[in-house]
Design a binder for these strands. Structure first.
Lengths: 227, 227
DNA sequence: CTTATATTCAATTGATTTCTTGAATATAGG
DNA sequence: CCTATATTCAAGAAATCAATTGAATATAAG
């Protein structure tokens, strides 16, 4: 084993630098932390909410969030008794890049999602720009089926909010003379799939938009937030 | 601790999906693996060369490379007795995104590099486009001081190759009537800094271009490769 | 076939990481 | 001040990971 000695100070520099880079890597090396980032792409959340959504204990959630914060991927803001966590700037883009790379490179992800979601491939007929045109001209109803708080944090123009949990009670609000396009958090969220299922069995012509607010934001589309 | 049970199959789906995403994360959670990716941004390398450049044992290097390969971040190709590793498609962009995020978010990186590199801030006066203009019109000499093999794998148009190790012997080749702009692998490589130091003490008016081929490739600039 | 070389495999050790549990801190309201 | 609640801290057990070592493959050349 020959070890050719480079100048030691250069080696120390490199070690330092890549050690820093790896802090980001380590932060996204845990499935639970990635799920936290995914949720935070939808908007700020409290520790307890995040724990609930990821189904881990509050203490564990807090610990993960602090690791993310140490890597400067999220920021915390204390509001009275609660602590709101939100994504730091530029992190959404990075996360989407990671997700995109995973989707393209890891066939297993495809397999996993398809096998669970099943109907997925039949449900992305509408592109973003085209959708807007059709919504604008009244040809389709755009439906945001995420929880109301996420709708308020940012939604497609012309989209109306009916959270999936209330959908079966509020079907009457939807005009029956045009298509409904439902969307939720993005390709790995099942809300819109369930919504389309429910709408179709209620006699609506319903489609699912596969992408979600994080994707649109990354693509530069203008989203509407309630004040 | 209240655990609100969501539908268990959805949870399993999410766990699977984020587990897959985390494979990418885990792959970039080690400083040495990031350094390997960084080097591979410059072009394909053999296992032994990578071990040498990162100053780890060959066995260890091979192990890291196999982790990267399992995450589909690199690809291996056997040429006779040697195995060439190269970046998979889309990975360079991802790596640069990670690096960029680290630079913006982790002040410590700045501190570490500045404290070692010292002169760094005084050495990036030329932007990419402007440089090309000036090189084209013969106002400056563009000098690639990386090892010759990296030059061959892709370099700036109008750049000439003089590896740092040969620079002191080949100073005579450079015209003295114009500025020299030296570049190497990118902001975390010390070659160009050393080259500028040497050139200046030999009486040249020398500048350092901070960015490197991976950055330019990401920015869509056309690079020249020897056939 | 034998030898030399590049790479990989396998087993071990010590270090990190994750999750859990129970306690500690901080804040709002009575 | 006292209580309830949201969050964080601290310590420990189990799992995972990184680096080392020595052996095992595979390929080219003699």
């Amino acid at each position: 084993m020959k070890v050719r000695e480079a100048e030691p100070s250069k080696r120390r520099l490199k070690d330092d630098v890549f050690e820093q880079f790896a802090r980001i890597g380590k932060a996204v090396a845990s499935p639970k932390r990635l799920e936290l980032l995914d949720i935070l792409c939808q908007g700020p959340r409290t520790v307890e909410r995040l724990a609930e959504l990821t189904q881990i204990s509050v203490a564990n959630s807090s610990q993960h969030l602090q690791i993310l914060r140490a890597a400067r991927l999220v920021e915390a803001e204390k509001h009275g008794l609660f602590v709101q966590y939100c994504l730091a700037e530029g992190v959404e883009t990075f996360y989407l890049g990671l997700r995109g790379l995973a989707e393209r490179r890891l066939a297993e992800v495809e397999v996993a999602t398809r096998s669970y979601l099943g109907e997925r491939e039949a449900m992305e007929p509408v592109g973003g720009g085209e959708l807007l045109q059709r919504a604008l001209s009244g040809q389709v109803t755009v439906l945001d089926v995420r929880p109301a708080e996420e709708y308020r944090a940012g939604h497609l123009p012309y989209a109306r909010s009916i959270p999936l949990s209330e959908l079966h009670l509020r079907l009457g609000e939807l005009p029956r003379d045009r298509d409904v396009v439902a969307y939720c958090r993005g390709p790995y969220c099942v809300f819109a799939i369930e919504a389309v299922k429910a709408l179709r069995s209620a006699g609506f012509s319903a489609l699912r938009l596969e992408s979600g607010p994080p994707d649109w934001r990354a693509a530069g589309l203008p989203l509407v937030a309630e004040s």
